[in-house]
Nucleic acid binder design. Structure first.
Lengths: 216, 216
DNA sequence: TACTTCTGATGACACTTGTCGTCAAATACT
DNA sequence: AGTATTTGACGACAAGTGTCATCAGAAGTA
């Protein structure tokens, strides 16, 4: 009986790290390797072997934390988006003090495009994540809608008499996310040729235009 | 010597078809099979074997026309977009007679979303085509920009005093394509739950808003 | 009718991938 | 020091894939 418990939850310190520390370091190492490989050679060209080589660990540790390369992809994607979303929100909140609307929009977009100057993240979030499996598709849908909602909360705060029907509002938010994403994606595929400010102003114009269609 | 020529360009009629007819029928059969499989089980799950089974032909004929499954994907994608783009342009031109701007926008969007009620096409054009290879990425970029240009030609026709700088205009067009695409994609991933008219009006509002940011 | 081309089926090959097992060396605990 | 656990390296296995060769029979042609 004790033997079984030891087998399951042994957890000895090794190399100066506790079991939990080791596990979390390995996880992070694989996450880094995943972002690197998914973001360069791409998801479909990434195998467990190349991941392990990149991480400097063996497959045993990979399977200890992740069930699949797909599992790792989901984790990398989720973490990247979490990080970016946080940066955007922070930028908007910071700008909230200085000016009401235009400044916030610009600040949010600025933060967004800044974050995606990391080409690996951009690749993972818009290229690699699509069409992998129903599970990942669902995750993508969910995150897109979540981002759209964030935009709409901001929009409604800026324009109190928001007169669009509920469902059309939802779609509008998604469309906005699409506009921003697509410009960033083409920016990436075009090797970041245009200056960032131009992306910001093109998308800011779109948003201002939308808000102006409302009665004010 | 004659033997070699015969080997290369034999071209005998068989089953009532000339060589060219056979070849083009086979090509079309594989295109149909590709749209079906890429649009349902997805590109990465589609193999030469399953394609041949679906097409009712053998691999020899596949390799006679296509070098790769990737090659077939590019062909299916290109043909789908050609078709859809033609439908959109036709709808806009038809509507041009009755009313000036708003009607054209609605008609174009209506045609666009109608075409993408074909879920296979939608899947291929926005999910399967991304992140496959640099070649396909380039093709995607090219087609997106082409679509953006089409939008801009229309926009400039509608609003003669177009006062946005050249490069920002390009980006704006791409953003618009993204808005429209993303709403359609989420529509697909959401099993076409919303009525089509709602997608049309949400995107039409965005476009009208944009045009209104120009001096008039 | 003889001959050539086309077709479909089948099998084979080399290769990659996910996944698991083994084994000796390193490390920690008692 | 002795024992148990952790680690990295290596190999092995089945499954799936792209690709090609073969071969008997069908369909034209002279």
């Amino acid at each position: 009986m004790q033997k079984i418990e030891q087998n399951n939850t042994s957890g000895r310190t090794y190399g100066g790290e506790s079991a939990a520390e080791r596990l979390s370091r390995q996880r992070q190492t694989f996450m880094d390797a995943g972002l690197e490989l998914f973001g360069t050679v791409g998801y479909r060209a990434t195998t467990v072997r190349t991941l392990c080589k990149q991480a400097g660990l063996t497959d045993r540790y990979f399977y200890k934390t992740f069930s699949d390369t797909e599992d790792l992809l989901a984790a990398v994607y989720t973490e990247s988006l979490d990080q970016i979303q946080a940066e955007v929100v922070a930028a908007i909140n910071t700008a909230a003090n200085q000016q009401l609307t235009a400044g916030q929009i610009d600040a949010g977009l600025e933060a967004f495009f800044s974050a995606f100057e990391n080409s690996r993240m951009a690749r993972v979030c818009w290229l690699e994540v699509l069409g992998v499996s129903p599970r990942i598709d669902a995750l993508y849908t969910h995150r897109t809608q979540q981002f759209a909602e964030l935009l709409l909360v901001l929009g409604r705060a800026m324009q109190p008499n928001w007169s669009i029907a509920e469902e059309e509002t939802r779609i509008t938010g998604i469309a906005l996310v699409g506009a921003i994403s697509q410009s960033a994606l083409q920016w990436l595929l075009d090797d970041y040729r245009s200056p960032r400010a131009m992306l910001v102003s093109a998308n800011a114009r779109l948003i201002r235009g939308l808000i102006n269609t409302l009665p004010h």
